[in-house]
Amino acid sequence: MAHLLGSQSCMDSLRKDLTDLQGAIVDVFSRAGPVRFPSWKFPDRVACDLDMVALLEHYDHVPDDPEFTQLSHAVLLELVIDR
């Protein structure tokens, strides 16, 4: 499975999953209000205040930088857990 770390298709799938999860969270928040708990990934911030658009823009596939791409892949996986 290590050969998939940094894979463009895996990262695209994770990004879509995160977008879907965030949409579901926003829908629940619109009905019940935000849940004010610390983020698992960023414990110094409240989970409902994370700027997912900025995070998804920053942690992206960069073909010329495999180390950053692998880091981004790991962060995207962690964001799925965080959501």
Rank of each mutant, 00 (worst) to 15 (best):
M1V: 11
M1W: 09
A2F: 14
H3F: 13
H3P: 03
L4N: 13
L4M: 15
L4S: 14
L4V: 13
L5M: 14
G6L: 07
G6I: 13
G6C: 13
S7E: 08
Q8V: 12
Q8R: 15
S9Q: 14
M11S: 10
M11I: 14
M11V: 13
M11G: 07
D12M: 15
D12V: 12
L14M: 15
L14Y: 02
L14Q: 14
R15W: 02
K16V: 15
K16C: 14
D17F: 07
D17E: 14
L18G: 06
T19D: 07
T19A: 13
T19H: 12
D20V: 13
L21Q: 11
L21Y: 12
Q22D: 11
A24E: 15
I25Q: 08
I25R: 10
V26T: 13
V26K: 11
D27T: 06
D27A: 13
D27N: 09
V28T: 13
V28E: 06
V28P: 00
V28Y: 11
V28D: 05
F29Q: 14
F29T: 10
F29D: 09
R31A: 12
R31H: 14
R31D: 05
R31P: 02
A32E: 14
A32G: 07
G33E: 06
V35L: 14
V35Y: 10
R36K: 12
R36C: 05
R36H: 06
F37K: 10
F37N: 06
S39N: 03
S39L: 04
S39M: 03
W40D: 00
K41Q: 04
K41G: 00
F42P: 00
F42L: 02
P43L: 00
P43Y: 02
P43W: 02
D44T: 07
R45C: 05
R45Q: 12
V46I: 09
A47G: 01
C48R: 04
D49V: 04
L50N: 02
L50Y: 02
L50M: 03
D51V: 08
D51Y: 07
D51Q: 08
D51E: 05
D51A: 06
V53S: 11
V53R: 11
V53A: 13
V53F: 08
L55C: 05
L56T: 04
L56E: 01
E57T: 03
H58E: 12
Y59W: 15
D60M: 05
H61Y: 15
H61K: 06
V62Q: 06
V62I: 09
P63F: 01
P63W: 01
P63L: 03
D64T: 09
D64L: 08
D65N: 12
D65G: 03
D65F: 01
D65A: 04
P66M: 04
P66T: 06
T69N: 01
T69D: 00
Q70I: 04
Q70E: 09
L71S: 08
L71Y: 08
H73V: 02
H73S: 02
A74V: 10
V75M: 12
L76R: 01
L76A: 02
L76F: 00
L77I: 10
L77S: 07
L77H: 07
L77V: 09
L79I: 04
L79S: 01
L79C: 02
L79P: 00
V80W: 01
V80E: 00
I81H: 10
